Computed example of a mutant assay.
Amino acid sequence: MTAPLTFYTNPMSRGQIARWMLEEVGQPYEQVVLDYGTTMKAPEYLAINPMGKVPAIKHGDTVITEVAAICAYLADAFPDAGLAPAPADRADYYRWLFFAAGPVEAAITNKSLGVELAPGKSMMAGYGSFDAAMDGLEAAVTGKRYIAGDRFSAADVYVGSQVGWGLAFGSIDKRPAFETYWDGLKDRPAYLKAKKIDEALMPKQA
């Protein structure tokens, strides 16, 4: 029997990415919706993630946090879903999954917060500069339907989410390569199902 899978999330979080991945995997899971500042900081959840952040998953007795790690773990834990390349073919898969989780995430966050690197200090930042990170991301997706080969993978869930979110909210440039890449992902049934679930969980407007 498959170990139980529990998903800790909030609809207004990066949990949306993890839910997309869960829907791509296609395995049943229990969801636990947490609130910022209350249940997310309660001792019960801090035992799952000491950072008091979502998402997290628990698969049997195994706990995984950090969205890129969740995507990679689920692809390996459920190989029948075909969401990871063969081990010998994972160079681009790992490269771009962690490029998006590292330099791209940091560059977007700093730009959104108005953080400016001091002159001559760009070498101290893993992303160098916002433009350099965007140029790297553009090179990664240009001319490709999928980021890591000829099949959709967990890397597309993570990179695609970064691109789709960035285009929707203006945190990345609307470059043609980004729009083309996202257009090839945004109608996937698992993405649409996950989006519908999270939209239903959003706080209702007064």
Results as ranks from 00 to 15, higher is better:
Ala154Cys: 01
Val33Asn: 08
Met1Phe: 10
Leu117Met: 05
Asp131Tyr: 00
Glu138Thr: 00
Pro87Met: 06
Lys174Trp: 05
Arg188His: 05
Gly15Cys: 03
Met51Ser: 06
Phe178Asp: 01
Tyr29Cys: 08
Ala154His: 01
Pro103Lys: 03
Gly37Gln: 10
Pro119Asp: 13
Glu105Gly: 07
Gly52Leu: 09
Ser122Val: 02
Ala168Gly: 03
Phe78Ile: 08
Val159Gln: 15
Phe99Ala: 10
Lys174Tyr: 02
Ala56Ser: 14
Pro50Leu: 09
Val159Thr: 14
Ala206Phe: 09
Asp187Trp: 06
Ala168Asn: 05
Trp96Gly: 00
Ser112His: 11
Pro43Asn: 08
Gly126Phe: 02
Leu167Glu: 14
Ser112Met: 13
Arg145Ser: 10
Arg151Thr: 07
Met124Cys: 00
Tyr94Ala: 05
Ile64Cys: 07
Tyr45Cys: 03
Lys144Met: 04
Ile108Cys: 15
Pro85Met: 07
Gln27Glu: 15
Ala88Gly: 15
Leu167Gly: 13
Trp182Phe: 09
Leu22Trp: 04
Ala42Gln: 04
Ala84Leu: 04
Gln27His: 08
Arg19Trp: 02
Lys41Gly: 04
Pro79Cys: 04
Pro79Gln: 05
Ser171Ala: 10
Pro50Trp: 08
Ala140Glu: 03
Gly143Asp: 09
Val159Glu: 11
Tyr181Lys: 00
Gly126Ser: 05
Lys195Arg: 15
Asp135Leu: 09
Lys144Asn: 03
Gln205Phe: 09
Pro79Thr: 11
Gly136Thr: 05
Arg95Glu: 11
Arg175Ala: 09
Ala125Thr: 06
Tyr8Asn: 11
Ala3Pro: 14
Leu5Phe: 12
Pro28Asn: 04
Cys71Lys: 06
Gly166Phe: 00
Gly128Arg: 04
Gly120Tyr: 07
Ala125Met: 07
Ala3Ile: 08
Val104Ile: 15
Val25Ile: 15
Arg90Val: 02
Val63Gln: 08
Gln205Ala: 14
Lys53Arg: 14
Asn10Tyr: 05
Gly143Met: 07
Ala132Gly: 04
Ala68Asp: 01
Phe178His: 05
Val67Met: 11
Glu138Met: 00
Tyr73Gln: 01
Thr38Lys: 13
Asp150Pro: 04
Phe78Arg: 05
Ala206Tyr: 03
Asp89Val: 06
Leu97Gln: 02
Tyr127Val: 00
Asp76Cys: 02
Ile48Leu: 05
Val141Ala: 12
Tyr36Thr: 08
Lys58Trp: 14
Gly160Cys: 07
Ala91Phe: 15
Ile172Arg: 01
Ala69Gly: 06
Phe98Trp: 10
Asp198Thr: 06
Leu22Ala: 03
Ala155Asp: 13
Tyr158Trp: 13
